[in-house]
Write a protein that binds this DNA or RNA. Structure first.
Lengths: 217, 217
DNA sequence: TAGATTGTTAATCGATTAACAATC
DNA sequence: TAGATTGTTAATCGATTAACAATC
């Protein structure tokens, strides 16, 4: 790795896309790829890709391009996939349960240690092998284990309170799936939110534009 | 509305956030807000907010600010919330089921008409009141009803095929929750993807940066 | 070698910020 | 009225694109 100084969020947000695209190329059996071809497959320019990678070092060979395997590996390293990150899930409602059962945490370098809930019916059980504990024991658990991230799938009304407890207990990041705009005062905690409704409303806007265009062409 | 000519995606992505923030202010009983205060609560500058709104018209009053109610209403209108959009869900696995049961479609101006699956066990049943039909009848259903959006929660391997069927059947947009990078050749169809792993990997990167900083301060 | 493609600097473009007259 | 805050244009900043020497 090279300069790294102040990588823009635009670049950071593209890194996972590169990683995903390279994984798909790898599965398809593609061994090498040029910045031009990679860009075309992702809707980016060759320049942009070379500029993005330039933030982190030199990963290609002149006249040849990039080896899919090793570029994927390098980007995975940059993303911290091999750092052994851990997380816990707060809230085992439909969404929490779905994520626990479906999401390939290990493919993203995360180990899911436990889930937490208040419902006595689920506390003590396991979901896809993951033990469900009572939220009362949250702080003790975090103190006893290294927990990097807390995933929030609690009801909106409980989001801020649970987020605060996670931050106070010392997690490094919060992955927020509630539709609540979490307030995070601590500069040492990273907040990443997945807002389904933001996504759907964006789609709604774009569709509405098309509808208008069809009316007044 | 005023000029509207070429609104950048950066602005479009902020519109749902404005809408969400204004909704929260409304619930808190806030009646008026200035661009400065709204910006502060969202981590934006006053200038940026005024510039964003300027794309669509004049919604405030000099010396006063914006009425929370009416600004929310206006932005909702821009987003197309009152257009009576409709959607169907493809795939009633854990994630599809969770979204059907939890997501407030109507709060975002969408009506969920039906879900589709191949599993004979669920076909014919209802999930949260939504009828589950067999995928074989997909095209007939879309031909018979107005379906604006197809939500994809099918297995990754089926994503492209189902996406193509939706596009061929004439939906205006696809809301993709699979981790597959859908290829959308049609310029008249809008593609919006929610990639959980992109989000987690971004978080992973940012956490890793903090970890490095703590090692070499 | 010749052709291809990178790494990297410079030029362009677009988005954000600043400024301020208009006006509530 | 005086103070506040908008709408809107101009200035700045940052991200994307272009260009090209280096080199595989």
């Amino acid at each position: 790795m090279k300069r790294n100084a102040k990588v823009s969020t635009a670049v950071i947000r593209r890194l996972p896309r590169y990683y995903r695209q390279l994984s798909e190329l790898q599965e398809t059996g593609v061994v090498r790829i040029s910045s031009g071809a990679l860009g075309k497959s992702m809707g980016l320019t060759a320049s942009q890709i070379r500029q993005d990678l330039f933030c982190f070092g030199e990963f290609g060979q002149q006249g040849y391009g990039y080896k899919v395997d090793s570029l994927k590996e390098e980007i995975g390293e940059i993303l911290g996939i091999s750092r052994g990150h851990t997380l816990i899930v707060l809230g085992t409602g439909n969404l929490g349960r779905a994520i626990i059962q479906n999401f390939r945490f290990s493919a993203n370098g995360f180990a899911l240690l436990a889930a937490f809930d208040v419902d006595p019916v689920v506390v003590g059980s396991r979901i896809a092998g993951v033990p469900v504990r009572h939220v009362n024991g949250l702080e003790d658990f975090i103190a006893a284990h290294r927990v990097d991230v807390g995933l929030l799938t609690v009801p909106m009304a409980a989001a801020q309170q649970m987020g605060d407890r996670l931050m106070d207990a010392g997690v490094k990041g919060i992955w927020n799936f509630t539709n609540y705009e979490l307030v995070c005062a601590r500069p040492d905690v990273v907040l990443e939110s997945v807002h389904f409704s933001d996504s759907l409303l964006t789609l709604s806007y774009l569709i509405s534009q098309r509808e208008d265009m069809e009316e007044n062409p």
